[in-house]
């Protein structure tokens, strides 16, 4: 029995390794406010909302809204990562905590959640060629 116990433990680990776990992913791209970016994409003009200043329709005219992305994230509108190939991932984290990084180059590591979402474990922003950890502290 004493010989069998360690083997039993090894077998359990082997079984655990075959079990399904949430896939870990890392995505890199531009941090956007997903509502404006989503609406601009629907209009076929995603470039209107890839930066922090967005073009919006007001009184029948297109006008520039400075720091629109930051304002949207401050309100709790989800932030997202737009990758080089144009795919958008909704970041499941506090949007308000990332408001100052909208339009910056970010790298998000976490677990795939739902369709198109990533439960962020780590959020980094590229500054002066180096990655800086800006992971929201609360509830992560």
């Amino acid at each position: 029995m004493k010989k069998l116990f360690p083997m039993f433990i090894v077998a359990l680990f082997a079984i655990a390794a075959t079990m399904e776990t949430a896939p870990k992913i890392t995505v890199e791209g531009t941090l956007v406010d997903t509502k404006c970016y989503g609406m601009a994409s629907a209009m076929g003009k995603p470039e209107m909302a890839i930066g922090n200043d967005h073009m919006v329709m007001k009184n029948g005219k297109m006008m520039k809204v400075p720091s629109c992305g930051t304002a949207c994230a401050s309100m709790g509108i989800p932030t997202g990562v737009v990758t080089e190939d144009g795919k958008t991932y909704i970041i499941i984290t506090s949007a308000t905590a990332l408001k100052d990084h909208v339009s910056q180059h970010v790298r998000v590591t976490g677990e795939k959640a739902f369709e198109g979402g990533i439960l962020a474990g780590k959020v980094e922003v590229k500054e002066n060629g180096k990655w800086k950890d800006v992971t929201p502290g609360a509830m992560m």
């Binding site: 997903t34 709790g76 989800p78 499941i92 949007a95 905590a97 739902f114 198109g116 979402g117 509830m139």
Partner: peptide
């Protein structure tokens, strides 16, 4: 805190989830 909210459809925990891009 600004975490995205979603609608869980189908009436059970394994139902389809729709993340809402809103405030």
């Amino acid at each position: 805190q600004g975490f995205p909210v979603a609608v869980l459809t189908g009436g059970d925990p394994d139902g389809k989830v729709w993340i809402l891009l809103t405030n």
